[in-house]
């Protein structure tokens, strides 16, 4: 499997504080990569550098490079909007827009210039089906999305991200606000989606990383400590700090 995304010597500062130190990583295509580590370790920050969501914070400074399909995404010639379209994101807290379910899904395609009603209907249905929520919502597409349960909202957000046909889906602790049943549905969905998408997921839940991911990266204090196949990382960690963390000695 080829690597769809690579980072090389990535450093990131918030004003004076360095939040990421020399992170280098290769993320293989059509797999699930999990980022774990104690809170404040930089895993979410790193995730956000992958589709340049950190650009929105004025005090952030970044050095090093992140390549997507061989192209450095921090290069000045890169259109960040096009980039974010290819690298979608699902957030910690479900954040549907205060609009109808249909308009939520159609928002992305419309933004990117799709106007035809037929085409939009098709995309909405397909995205909702892909996110395994179609049957639950097909009769109330015109209802406000804020009326759904938290788990449904999160799957709606996944469907919304899928609607612009991304290649990669970044998930920032997508289940931390959800109950166990909704969580397991999202996990099943992630495994299903990896057939066609590359998924990078930040999780504070190590069982979740074990259950769904192919590769796991362990972050500590802004550094990538260890990265490898999930099974191997959890059974025979190389670094002492990884071992301490996964055996629950800190964090």
């Amino acid at each position: 499997m080829s690597d769809i995304m690579t980072a090389k010597d990535l450093n990131l500062w918030y004003d004076q504080t360095q939040a990421l130190k020399n992170v280098s990583i290769k993320i293989p295509e059509k797999s699930i990569t999990a980022f774990i580590g104690p809170s404040g370790c930089g895993k979410s920050t790193f995730l956000k550098t992958l589709n340049r969501m950190n650009d929105l914070i004025p005090s952030v400074k970044i050095t090093g490079e992140v390549c997507y399909n061989g192209q450095n995404i921090y290069d000045s010639s890169v259109d960040v909007n096009e980039l974010r379209r290819e690298i979608g994101m699902v957030f910690q807290k479900p954040n549907p827009f205060p609009m109808s379910i249909y308009d939520n899904i159609a928002y992305g395609p419309r933004t990117h210039g799709i106007k035809s009603k037929v085409k939009l209907d098709e995309i909405v249905e397909q995205s909702l089906r892909d996110a395994a929520i179609w049957d639950e919502v097909k009769d109330r597409l015109k209802k406000n999305a804020l009326g759904m349960s938290g788990g449904q909202q999160q799957r709606l957000c996944i469907a919304r991200a899928l609607a612009v046909k991304p290649k990669i889906l970044l998930m920032d602790e997508p289940t931390s606000a959800l109950d166990p049943i909704s969580t397991s549905r999202i996990e099943e969905l992630a495994i299903e989606l990896k057939k066609s998408y590359t998924i990078v997921i930040v999780t504070h839940n190590m069982q979740q990383a074990v259950r769904i991911s192919d590769n796991t990266a362990f972050f500590l204090l802004g550094e990538l400590i260890e990265y490898g196949e999930t099974e191997k990382l959890f059974s025979q960690p190389v670094d002492k700090r990884t071992e301490d963390y996964i055996t629950g000695r800190f964090g």
Binding site: D79, N81, E82, T111, H112, G113
Partner: peptide, 8 residues
């Protein structure tokens, strides 16, 4: 690149 309409 953004298409013309979006840019406008």
């Amino acid at each position: 690149m953004l298409n013309k309409k979006r840019k406008a």
